[in-house]
Design a protein around this nucleic acid. Structure first.
Length: 834
DNA sequence: AGCACGCCGACT
DNA sequence: GTCGGCGTGCTC
């Protein structure tokens, strides 16, 4: 066949949870500029048009259907580059989700084009000439009022379930047009500026005359003009007029300048108004940038070792294992600087809570405007600007949270994953349930970039791979700047309780220590990994415990808002002082949350300034930062909080860290509980004592002899690792096997139960009994009105093909949900659950 | 995920 | 009888 008569086809990714790609025909006029990675507008399904991503272009006409045409090509340069397309395809495959789900997570929504249906009257039509029903008349009247009416708006006003059919009929009769409009939601920020009109330029005399005439006739305008001349500096240099002055800044900084006066000057033709595109991020003076910090000998040595691991030992991945406070960041800065100097890009990943303004400001002073920040607290437009900035080359360095792995890098040479062990790198809801550390490694592979993992308490998997020589390994045991590791005491809760010596939740040791630190005007951090006042209420007369209507969990009591909250679905209801079952007033709070600790402290130390930091007190956009600032300024003596406290906060005056209840961490039913407990306790301990003061840590526990606590106390990470690895090997857990978690969900418990059993049976047929665990009834077996059953698949690292196993699992799930009893069944697949 | 078609209860 | 509830099937 002649090549020129062949049609061009595009396989596109629809940003929805659909398993396949869809093939569209590329019209002649678009054939030249469409490329893989471009966003295109297509009509999909009934009427709807949506934005899709071109995955592949080819000439194979589909055999069993006629491909619809691509309606519009939105990009000249592809929004996704080839490396991203490969990465995203890998993610969909590895994490067993659809390509559309990856795209959905990757693109900032400002880059996802909204297409909306609009309805308008056909121009010049004579409505009266047509017979219309009353409803049709009503609809036409509504449309008539507008030039073009949005479908959603019309549907809101009409409230007729058959609206679409009615409109379709009207369209067929030639009365109305239904059409799609696309609108890009990303809008660059624009600034309105003013400058002196050309005729007054280069002529001081004319300008003086103008001023003196204004002074008498219009003093406000005279003043505004005077201030403009001053602010713009045009008298020193006329060319400064070109860039003008921001209109708002003229009247916002000086109350004597009236906006009206500026408007009048524009009207008179003295000022001219113009607009420029500006960044949403404040600019930094390039010549005010600081050099990278000087490294201590220990840091210098670590840096050399990293370079050696990467370039001499040819490791693509290295682990920097540095104790808390050893100054890993300074080392990163040097590596980043080196990578940037070679002209390539750098990605620096941090967990959500560690990406504070503290660290951003510090990096900003060194790297200036070439650094982009990608944070989930950013607005959509800001995120789109970072995306575009990476694409255009404006940002060669990005500090960001887990989703920054999606950014359009084309030339990475270094990726840093700081606090590599952090569980928040793993996305839980919705799909793709990816782990940013692991995605970063794949990203690094695609770019031939080096990946540096950093942690004081590496994830067991990571440490194991480093031990096995798969990753380079660099240890940094010395704390930066003379700081001593804190002294850890374990305080026996059980004996204290027995002897009746507890003061509320505090052992005498912890109480005494807090008192002393307060006296010495030092700061205290108290850690309790549970928000709310108490995890549940309990009626002493009838045993009633308030539970969530939608989930099988007790409701947590939040005293400050007098509410009972479900920490699984967010449901909340008012808390009454009495038992809802028997009316008794003898309702007891059981367990300890951060709120309760806060209240107890106020009773025990009435003169101390106490604040609380948890999800509830940091909901607002700036709330977290404000709390940190207040603590830093020593407006707070004692800060009580959840694990939020453990992340990279450096406060010099904190000399005591208390852990209220370590047992809750140690006895959490999860194979990672001990690892997590060690990490959390070590990280929170690291908050005590920086610089020259030696810190103290007191951990309260009912099991003071627990080996994990002793490891925390003696800083024997290797010992913990050895013990845990033995356990993991014995019971087949990572890193010795790979895990895939399956969660079966259904609104009826029997159905969820039966389906889970059927699925296990099916899986066992090919994979054998040993590889399939469950189904288990989870601790919380109902969430948001869905009954849950868990299945765990264990796959050895060798001798079995992971991809085939995943294919088989997907096949089993598909077969299962095809059965008519299991129609409304949901199966959530979580690869490498964390 | 939408969105339209289809089959059953509470109303004019 | 109809309106409208939501269950389910499809989307190149």
């Amino acid at each position: 066949m002649n090549k020129h008569t062949q049609h061009l086809y595009a396989d596109v990714i629809i940003p929805l949870p659909l398993p396949q790609l869809y093939t569209y025909q590329v019209p002649e006029e678009h054939a030249r500029n469409v490329q893989a990675g471009c966003r295109v507008v297509v009509s999909f399904g009934k009427q709807k048009t949506i934005t899709a991503i071109v995955q592949r272009l080819h000439h194979q006409a589909p055999e069993h259907y006629r491909a619809k045409p691509i309606l519009e090509v939105l990009d000249d340069t592809p929004t996704l580059n080839d490396l991203q397309l490969s990465l995203f395809a890998w993610m969909a495959d590895y994490y067993m989700c659809t390509p559309g789900e990856v795209i959905q997570a990757a693109l900032p929504s400002a880059l996802k084009i909204n297409t909306q249906s609009f309805i308008s009257l056909v121009p010049g039509i004579d409505i009266e000439a047509h017979t219309l029903s009353e409803e049709e008349r009503r609809i036409v009247a509504l449309i008539q009022k507008h030039e073009a009416l949005q479908y959603e708006e019309l549907s809101r006003k009409v409230r007729n379930s058959r609206l679409y059919g009615l409109l379709k009929q009207l369209q067929d009769r030639g009365l109305i047009d239904i059409f799609e409009k696309t609108k890009e939601r990303y809008t660059p920020k624009r600034q309105r500026k003013v400058r002196l009109a050309a005729q007054w330029l280069h002529d001081k005399n004319a300008l003086n005359e103008l001023l003196s005439s204004l002074e008498k006739q219009a003093p406000q305008q005279w003043y505004a003009l005077l201030k403009y001349i001053e602010a713009s500096g045009i008298l020193r240099d006329w060319t400064r007029n070109e860039s003008g002055v921001e209109k708002k800044s003229l009247y916002a900084t000086d109350a004597r300048i009236k906006e009206a006066a500026i408007q009048a000057l524009i009207k008179k033709g003295i000022f001219e108004e113009f607009e420029v595109e500006v960044s949403r991020f404040a600019a930094v003076d390039a010549d005010k940038l600081l050099p990278p910090p000087t490294l201590s000998p220990a840091q210098e040595k670590a840096l050399q070792q990293i370079v050696k691991a990467f370039f001499e030992e040819k490791k693509d991945i290295a682990l920097l294992h540095g104790v808390t406070g050893s100054g890993k960041t300074e080392i990163y800065i040097h590596l980043i600087q080196q990578a940037l100097e070679s002209g390539s890009q750098v990605l620096y990943l941090l967990p959500e809570i560690a990406l504070t303004t503290q660290i951003v400001q510090r990096l900003r002073k060194i790297f200036g405007d070439k650094m982009g920040v990608y944070h989930s607290r950013f607005s959509d437009n800001e995120r789109a600007e970072v995306w575009r900035g990476v694409q255009s080359g404006r940002f060669s360095f990005v500090v960001g949270v887990r989703s920054a792995v999606f950014l359009p890098f084309d030339n990475l040479s270094l990726i840093i994953v700081d606090e590599e062990h952090e569980a928040s790198y793993k996305q839980h809801e919705p799909a793709p349930r990816y782990h940013a550390r692991d995605v970063a490694m794949m990203l690094g592979k695609l770019h031939y970039a080096k990946v540096l993992l950093g942690s004081a308490t590496p994830a067991l998997e990571t440490y194991y791979h480093a031990q096995q020589g798969r990753y380079g390994y660099i240890a940094l045991q010395e704390r930066y700047g003379n700081a001593q590791l804190p002294q850890v005491h374990i305080s026996d809760l059980r004996t204290a309780q027995k002897k009746n010596r507890l003061q509320y939740s505090f052992t005498p040791e912890l109480y005494e220590a807090i008192r002393k630190r307060l006296e010495a005007q030092e700061q205290v951090i108290l850690f309790q990994n549970r928000r709310g006042y108490s995890p549940y209420l309990y009626c002493e007369d009838c045993g009633w415990i308030p539970k969530c209507r939608f989930c099988n969990v007790s409701l947590t009591y939040h005293m400050h808002e007098r509410a009972l909250r479900c920490h699984y679905c967010g449901h909340h209801q008012g808390a009454k002082g009495t038992c809802q079952a028997c009316g008794s007033t003898r309702v007891r709070n059981v367990g300890i949350g951060t709120e309760k600790i806060e209240d107890e402290l106020k009773l025990l130390f009435p003169e101390a300034r106490v604040a609380r930091m948890d999800l509830d007190t940091t909901r607002g956009k700036e709330a977290y930062q404000k709390l940190i600032d207040r603590f830093e300024a020593h407006d707070i003596d004692i800060l009580v909080g959840t694990q939020m406290l453990t992340k990279g906060l450096d406060f010099e005056k904190v000399t005591l860290v208390g852990v209220i209840d370590a047992d809750q961490l140690l006895y959490f039913p999860d194979f990672r509980a001990h690892e997590r407990a060690y990490q959390l306790l070590t990280q929170v301990s690291g908050r005590a004592g920086r610089k020259d003061s030696k810190g103290e840590v007191i951990i309260q526990s009912r099991h003071p002899e627990h080996p994990v606590l002793l490891d925390v106390q003696q800083q024997t990470y290797e010992q913990l690792v050895t013990r845990e690895l033995q356990e993991r090997q014995k019971y087949n857990y990572p890193p010795f096997v790979r895990l895939i978690g399956l969660q079966v969900k259904h609104s009826k418990e029997e159905v969820a139960h039966a389906a889970a059993h059927d699925l296990v049976e099916q899986l066992q047929k090919q994979l054998g009994k040993a590889r399939i665990l469950g189904p288990d009834i989870p601790l919380v077996d109902r969430v948001k009105n869905y009954y849950l059953r868990n299945i765990l698949v264990k796959i050895e690292r060798q001798g079995i093909h992971l991809g085939s196993v995943k294919k088989y699992i997907a096949h089993c799930i598909q077969q299962l949900t095809l059965q008519k009893d299991y129609r409304r069944l949901l199966v959530v697949v979580d690869v490498d659950p964390a």
